[in-house]
């Protein structure tokens, strides 16, 4: 370990662009807290999305110890992490953010993720759990409205939406605004209210769809175990504690900002909330549940996590 007085600087690669609220709220907070508590002995040097490593290589870079810290979405580490699919959210599983938080921290899912990441020399700490929600240009009032939609999506949710009968296609983020504006797609999801707001999506799509497509730990902070081990013990403790707190602080704060942002969008841009009709919701839940089992097939851990999840949802009376 480094001597107690030495100053260490960590390079931190974000997967958020600078304008994203999480860049300042999550990374900014972490930097401030850690630098304060270590009396400036550990400094975080932040880099915006893509500056050093592309999002999908950040896990590798941290795993190799080239980067000391990074932020990712679990889906960027799917080739290594068999639990990533569950971590990045099964569609229509949780109905409230607190449930996902409880599942992560009190039911032991977070520890399972941490154990699997440890195999690659990575210390895993979920930044927050939060919903992913759609915005659409025309309100969804019936099942037909839903199935006639063209939606910009990605990853597991794209599979889900396609399976459910909508026409989901992947369009890169850089072309999302134009695509929605000109009507190439009628809907999209980019985080929830804050994401849509930061991408300017409310300018061209006025309906914010509830409930969430999923609620999950979609943002993760990863630390190189090698870098962590090099710190003196008191500093290691400070870092881990800061990360543990981070989950609760950010999950709560994010909820608050979601509501504030949505209120602003409603007041300033005439956005309306489009709650899916009950029959549409029921059909979506049914499609979703049919897809969950796929994720359990990836490994023993994944099977166990899925079992835990089902039991948990059962106890809540959702299954």
């Amino acid at each position: 370990p480094a001597s107690a007085q030495e100053t260490v600087t960590w390079k931190v690669q974000s997967h958020w662009p600078g304008s994203s609220s999480s860049y300042t709220d999550s990374l900014g907070r972490l930097k401030r807290v850690i630098e304060e508590r270590t009396d400036g002995r550990l400094k975080l040097q932040l880099f915006e999305a893509g500056a050093l490593f592309k999002a999908k290589d950040t896990f590798d870079a941290v795993s190799r110890g080239i980067l000391e810290m990074g932020t990712i979405s679990p889906s960027y580490a799917q080739d290594k992490m068999t639990l990533a699919g569950i971590a990045s959210g099964l569609p229509f599983a949780f109905r409230h953010v607190w449930e996902a938080a409880y599942f992560h921290q009190n039911m032991g899912f977070e520890q399972m993720l941490r154990d699997e990441a440890a195999k690659y020399g990575v210390y895993w700490a979920t930044d927050k759990v939060y919903p992913t929600e759609m915005v659409v240009k025309k309100p969804i009032k019936s099942w037909d409205d839903f199935t006639s939609l063209k939606i910009r999506s990605s990853g597991a949710l794209q599979t889900f939406l396609t399976e459910a009968g909508a026409a989901a296609s992947y369009i890169p983020g850089s072309e999302l605004y134009s695509a929605l504006d000109s009507g190439i797609v009628d809907g999209a999801h980019w985080g929830a209210a804050q994401g849509a707001y930061s991408m300017g999506l409310y300018e061209v799509a006025k309906y914010h769809v509830k409930p969430a497509l999923n609620i999950a730990g979609t943002d993760v902070i990863i630390v190189s175990q090698k870098a962590l081990d090099k710190l003196p013990e008191d500093m290691q403790k400070i870092v881990k504690q800061a990360l543990d707190e981070q989950f609760w602080v950010r999950t709560n704060e994010y909820q608050y900002k979601e509501r504030v942002t949505l209120a602003k969008a409603i007041a300033e841009q005439g956005v309306q909330i489009n709650t899916l009709p009950d029959d549409v919701q029921a059909k979506l839940v049914k499609t979703a549940q049919g897809m969950w089992d796929e994720e359990g097939k990836r490994s023993e851990e994944a099977k166990k996590a899925l079992g835990m999840l089902k039991e948990f949802l059962g106890n809540l009376g959702y299954l």
């Binding site: 794209q158 599979t159 296609s169 992947y170």
Partner: peptide
Amino acid sequence: LEVGFRYLFNSPTVWTNE
């Protein structure tokens, strides 16, 4: 092909762009 599938048949493919 993708433009055709999406615009004419309203059924974008998952594979063309990727």
